[in-house]
Every structure is written in C-alpha cells, then in structure tokens.
Design a protein around this nucleic acid. Structure first.
Lengths: 140, 140
DNA sequence: CTGCTTGCAAAGGCTTTGCAGAACA
DNA sequence: TGTTCTGCAAAGCCTTTGCAAGCAG
C-alpha cells in the first residue's frame, strides 16, 4: 500500500473498507480513521484511548475485533516484539523495526537499511507468510 | 556459547551456574539440566512439565524466576514470536528462526542461511541489544 | 426482516507478586 | 545465622468469549 492511504476522508475510508470486503460500520470507520491517519504503531489500548479522546463510543471488545479483522485483510500489520502486548502498524509496506526494550518504543527502520539476501529454504510443507526483522536496542 | 555446553553432568551444571554468578540451588540445577541438555525451544509450561516428568518438585513460580534469570545472564535466549507465550532457546549462538503460525512450531534457521548486511544506524542514544529475524511460515 | 456487529462483563491464559517457610553459604 | 530462594495462592494484564440488544443491507 502506498502513502496515499493516509489522510483519508470518511468516504474514502468507507470505500477502502468495502474494497477489503469489510462492512463499514460506524465503529470500524472511526477506528480506521484513527489508525490509518498516518504511519504509526499502536497497541489495542492506545487505539481505544484515541477513540475515546475523539468522542467515539467504542468498546474494548470492538477494538480487538476490529484490529484483528484489519490485520487479517492486510490493512494493518501485527508486530510482535513485546510479550505483554501486540502492536498494530499502519504501515503495511515492507519494512523492519527497532524496538527499545527500555522504553517500549517501536520505530521503523528506514526502508532499504536492512538487506536480507535470498530467503533460506523453508521447512518442508510450508510457505512464507512474512519476514520480521527486529533490532532490539537499549537506551544508553 | 558452543555446543560443548550440551550434555552436561550435574557437576558441570553447578560450575556453569557459578560462572554466571548464579547460586546453584537444587531447582536451578534441575531446570538447567532439562533446558540445556540440547538445543531446543521450550515455553515455561513445557519446562515445568519436563521437570515434573523427571520427578522434580519445582513450582511454576520458580520456573518463571529461573528462566528469567537464565535469560538475563545469557544462558538462554527469549524468543518472542507468539503473543501468547515466550519461548526460551537453549541455543544462544547467533541464529534466527522459522515460526509456523499454524502449528506454533519454532525452528532454527541454519546458521549463515540469512545474510544481514551491516546494521543500520541505531536511533540516537541507543545501543544494540540483539537482532531477531523471524520468518513466519504457514503449513500448505 | 435476518444476519452481522456491538458492548458489557465474565472468563481465560500466561506471567508476576506477596509472603511464610526452607535452603544456601 | 543472615540472606537468598522456593512454593503456594492470589493478583495482574492483555485478550477472547458469551450473549442480549442494536445496526446494516
């Protein structure tokens, strides 16, 4: 997906959801507006907090359902770096991450800054589903 | 650490723990014997189950404390690929992983099969703490 | 209408913690 | 003996689920 997905009007969000065969309910549209507004890394709790700040009346269960749905259709990407919570990344183009284990901060690695040669042979009977590179850093 | 760390006698385990400034209590020695017996990926629950199979009377709390301690001193490595549980890898030499999202199986990627060029510039004020490469695969 | 969604609260699963008793040095 | 460790149960967190009421098409 390109950066054109960012800064979307409500109508564009509705269209985007429809293209992904997601029925554009009010909650889903509001969550999409928050999450897809710019490249960012948000936990479910942060999405909920942002929604409430905006005045949306969305429940925690719906945030989880919706983020799971968005991840399944490729609107966001789950980033698993911290055993205590999942991050959702609104940038679904191929890129990798720095994770500061002291602050819990997740940052993008500039595209092209990590070269990954050809993939190794996959285990028999499997197909690739994604490659994650996480560089853990510590505040010094 | 080399493969020489595997197949250790009780005395060797005690010595290994002492070298890492870990007081070799009975439970820690038993857990180390299980975990460090060979290259493997175990969850805390699996360590506990193996300990009980062996007849050790170790509690869940002690398994968590001990695995956390071992990870902190570098006797094992935490592998975070699944938001529902942490894996402990007894192979602490540099290598990466395949993770089968369908089966939950974690496998080593043969050493050298993934080429990672030079690391990108780290965020200001941080130092590298580790690099994880996870290739997610699906059963086909 | 008819099924999909939502929200609430409760349940679930993994991990941590508090504290008394036990083991280590 | 003083400190560190262990075990149990309870608590904590994030996430999922059950089910009745509410919306979408």
């Amino acid at each position: 997906m390109s950066a054109a997905e960012f800064h979307l009007s409500k109508a564009e969000i509705v269209e985007l959801l429809r293209r992904h065969r997601i029925s554009p309910t009010q909650q889903r549209v509001e969550i999409a507006q928050i999450v897809l507004s710019k490249p960012q890394h948000l936990s479910a709790d942060e999405v909920l907090a942002l929604a409430h700040e905006r005045g949306s009346r969305v429940s925690k269960a719906t945030v989880y359902n919706t983020m799971g749905l968005f991840a399944r259709v490729g609107l966001v990407r789950e980033v698993i770096v911290d055993p205590t919570k999942v991050f959702y990344d609104s940038n679904v183009s191929e890129h990798h991450h720095f994770y500061n284990v002291d602050t819990g901060e997740l940052m993008d690695i500039p595209a092209g800054a990590v070269e990954l040669g050809t993939l190794p042979d996959l285990p028999k009977g499997t197909q690739a589903a994604g490659v994650d590179v996480i560089i853990r850093v510590r505040s010094q």
